[in-house]
Design a protein around this nucleic acid. Sequence first.
DNA 1: TGTCACCGAGAACGCTCGTTCTAGCACATT
DNA 2: AATGTGCTAGAACGAGCGTTCTCGGTGACA
Lengths: 223, 223
Amino acid sequence: MVQRQATSLRRRGPRPLSQRQRRILEFIDTFAEDKGYAPSIRDIVKGCSISSTSVVDYNLRILEREGHLRRDAEVSRGIVRLGQQRRDKLAVPLMGQIAAGQPIPVPAADTWSSLGSVETMEVPRELARGHSDAFALRVKGTSMIDALINDGDIVLMQAAQSASDGDMVAVWLKDEQEVTLKKIFYEGNRVRLQPANSQMQPIYTRPENVEVQGKVLGVIRQM
Amino acid sequence: MVQRQATSLRRRGPRPLSQRQRRILEFIDTFAEDKGYAPSIRDIVKGCSISSTSVVDYNLRILEREGHLRRDAEVSRGIVRLGQQRRDKLAVPLMGQIAAGQPIPVPAADTWSSLGSVETMEVPRELARGHSDAFALRVKGTSMIDALINDGDIVLMQAAQSASDGDMVAVWLKDEQEVTLKKIFYEGNRVRLQPANSQMQPIYTRPENVEVQGKVLGVIRQM
DNA sequence: TGTCACCGAGAACGCTCGTTCTAGCACATT
DNA sequence: AATGTGCTAGAACGAGCGTTCTCGGTGACA
């Protein structure tokens, strides 16, 4: 098991977690979500393919010292996860607005993971369907109305440079200088952009003119 | 300990809990909230001033049978409380479908509080805006498309018999024998039903023809 | 008066589980 | 080469804990 970390990094600040420690944390979460109570140390042994309880105990001490969980001594299943939002909600950054006249502001990896000051909102976990790097945008204007998206709606997005046929995507149309949300279909030497509203007509354009900016995971509208 | 119940009452239906059983349930909740994990049977013995673990076991069996909690056999602290929502997420019952041809199935108070088998989904608490008796419906068909609601969308509803001007409501149109989602405006001797889509025309009808069935709190669409 | 369902008490059995002790390997430091 | 640190392994101890068995008491019903 080669997962050693440079010692120099450990001297100062909170230490990065080893792969095994991250695995344990993740297992504790999924176990608790699944069963409704915390795993025992031997549950973790089995769930993470570890050979001994002492290894788990050792790593749990570290995780407790680093503030990721709390343990009550001598208490079965006394592990309590700390500092994480509720299991069935996903906190996504609300990046700003999406309007017809400008590209969408894609989060630059470190923009909000280090700097935690961006507004976030919680969405049902089912909406994101496993995409943990999702982000949200508030729609400005009614230019997306043929995609059944109104002024003020919130779209849950995932950054992407390409898409598959039928995906609902945010595309930047270079000629028109605007973004729009449409279902995308690649048809040989042209691209069909199909509104979600069946009563509306699709847009046909050249492949060079479209630039996929992200996939739409869902829409939330508050009345 | 005088807490005996009339035997005749026990024969049918869900039995009322004894004082001791209510005490145990309450203790489980406060313990879990306080510590972050479920109490052991001996914790309950101490916390409820009971003299034996078998008494707790006996009552826990009853509580499990009555659906107040779930127990995993042979698992320490394997008690999981059921039927109570967490504080900062909102679990709403997914009542079924809403289609144009039929009224919405309003939850009849006891329909899902006793019978716990209905599907539930979790929504962002902001969406419900304080309405804790909200419920959800899956939209069937594209008849609501002028309200920017598509086939498969989920609408978060609150039962209501009346509405204020500008509310987005589900109304049952008696003459047309269908439900639709519109913004409602009372204009003297007529009612204006305005689609959310500004490109669509409003419907005007007689007040007697409309029957408000619920307010729309929000819309969730999953791609 | 006897039977039965309901309920509580006490004790013992045996698995569950946290803890701890010893040992060993890899790598860095001195 | 000697020492220290980070980490993994295996095993055993002992307390925690769910389960179950026996015994007793109370009230309802016939």
